[in-house]
Design a protein around this nucleic acid. Structure first.
Length: 483
DNA sequence: CGAGAGTACTATAAAGTACTCTCGGTGCATTATT
């Protein structure tokens, strides 16, 4: 292939005159036919990588995406640019629409779908008829973090790749620890091919990290309110319980001048969308969220992320605190640590992972149990249909339990460690770089004095002034949107 | 599992004790008979 001038193509298709970090390298590697894993920091335009590469390749680009909302966002951006070359193949389509799309699948240059959709016979069959030149897995860490727990179709992507004639594979994510990188590559690797890794440093030098030890829940609430009253800007408080997220959100509204809303899977789509919009427009100061809040949230000026409950593992921790400070400004992430929270995490592990007895019983009486809708059961259906043996499945879940327990242990060790917190994180990402620890880096234990030191202490402003500032902000942001 | 909330009990009433109950995350996709 003659050497393409990528910068020219970038200008031609997107109107930009320069690439962001990692983009050009990723596109070049794909165009040379290499399977690629790109771990690029958020906000560096990961989707541009496969979109430009996709335009420059002959066939269709298939993009696997974990959330309907992400698919809709992406497709509407294509439509905004004025070419109907992208389609989201999701359950939002009616039966007849879906049939039409599958029949005319060759007319789309980019096909977005969920792994579940890709597992459907008629979908993979339609895609087999056309030339798929690029297979993209967006938010590829889901393969490792969601696949084995509750979305088993993520474990079948390899199958789809082979059925589609082993097109070039691109896995994209913003944060993947060394374990997750390896997991992704193992899952997506096809025979005789190896992945090329493009890993940009995940070190977030503008996020100060710390841990705050508390005695019990009332102490925790007290410390949280105190902290929120002193800290500047907007932020997220992460919970491992929907109920607590609701309760504490009320607590914040009633005891601080801040406006807070909960965000978790019990809210319907409309409510979630509203909260997200309000947060984007600075009409909400604090989101009290579970892990449901995260992917696809593109607010750049989140100043703090607080973990009310200790994160389940390192991977979630890094993903979640990484949502602060995307504008590069000084931000802070604090984990509240109460010894009892370990039980909550451990129970969540037990809740989702079926034990030996359950698996044996389930396989024995499968027919009577199908459709009970139990979460553990749904996952087991997948293995039952794959005709795995009881012993194989028992082994698999025992391993999974050990993995998760190890993840939890690592988190406990991290919380109790007094070493440089950033260095510990880099080590988890397999980066050998040594951190130059300074007062903006981290502290083993949190003390409110650091807020002033790193410039995150709130200046006292009167409520009236605050209202005024926010309403002018809104007017300005609306004006910009209109132009 | 085990903390924390809630309830029952006592018997000047109020507040303390003992017991019981509840909790615990992430999302695709569902389709259809009279």
């Amino acid at each position: 292939m003659s050497k393409i001038n990528l910068k020219e193509k970038l200008m031609e298709y997107f109107g930009f005159d320069s690439f962001m970090i990692g983009q050009e390298e990723t596109i070049e590697t794909i165009l040379s036919g290499q399977d690629t894993l790109s771990v690029l920091p958020t906000g560096t335009g990961k989707s541009l990588c496969y979109q430009l590469a996709g335009y420059l390749m002959n066939g269709t680009t298939v993009i696997v995406s974990p959330l309907l909302s992400l698919i809709q966002d992406q497709v509407s951006q294509f439509n905004f640019r004025g070419n109907g070359t992208a389609i989201g193949l999701t359950s939002i389509l009616s039966y007849s629409e879906k049939k039409y799309v599958l029949k005319n699948i060759q007319s789309y240059k980019f096909v977005y779908l969920s792994p579940e959709m890709l597992s459907q016979f008629e979908v993979i069959n339609a895609l087999k008829q056309i030339d798929v030149s690029l297979f993209v897995v967006d938010e590829a860490h889901c393969i490792s973090t969601w696949g084995p727990d509750f979305r088993p179709d993520y474990l079948d992507l390899n199958n789809a790749i082979v059925k589609l004639g082993t097109p070039c594979v691109l896995a994209l994510t913003a944060t993947a620890t060394l374990n997750i990188q390896n997991d992704i590559m193992t899952q997506l690797k096809t025979e005789g091919r190896d992945f090329h890794k493009i890993i940009k440093s995940v070190n977030r030098s503008n996020i100060f990290l710390s841990v705050l030890k508390v005695h019990d829940e009332s102490d925790k609430n007290k410390q949280l309110l105190n902290l929120l009253n002193k800290i500047k800007g907007v932020g997220i408080v992460y919970f491992s319980s929907k109920k607590k997220a609701n309760e504490v959100s009320d607590l914040i509204n009633n005891n601080t001048g801040l406006r807070s809303e909960p965000y978790h899977a019990d809210l319907n789509d409309m409510a979630r969308y509203t909260v997200q919009r309000q947060f984007m427009e600075n009409q909400i100061d604090v989101i009290c969220a579970t892990s449901a809040f995260g992917m696809g949230i593109n607010k750049k000026d989140i100043r703090y992320v607080i973990h009310y409950h200790m994160p389940a593992d390192f991977e979630s921790y890094v993903q979640e605190f990484g949502r602060s400070g995307r504008d590069g400004q000084q931000s802070i992430a604090i984990v509240f640590s109460q010894e009892n929270d370990v039980f909550l995490q451990r129970n969540l592990i037990d809740l989702t992972i079926p034990d030996d007895d359950f698996i044996r019983m389930y396989f024995k009486k499968h027919k009577e149990l199908v459709g009970l809708g139990e979460e553990k059961g749904k996952l087991l259906d997948y293995y039952y249909e794959k005709q795995s043996s009881v012993e194989e499945v028992q082994f698999l879940f025992r391993q999974r339990k050990i993995e998760k327990e190890t993840g939890l242990q690592n988190m406990i060790m991290f919380v109790n460690s007094s070493n440089c917190r950033k260095q510990q994180i880099l080590n988890h990402f397999g980066e050998s770089k040594l951190i130059e620890h300074d007062e903006f880096c981290c502290s083993a234990l949190f003390n409110v004095d650091v807020l002033q030191k790193i410039g995150l202490e709130k200046k006292i402003i009167k409520n009236d002034d605050k209202q005024l500032i926010q309403s002018t902000d809104n007017i300005i942001s609306r004006l910009f949107k209109l132009s």
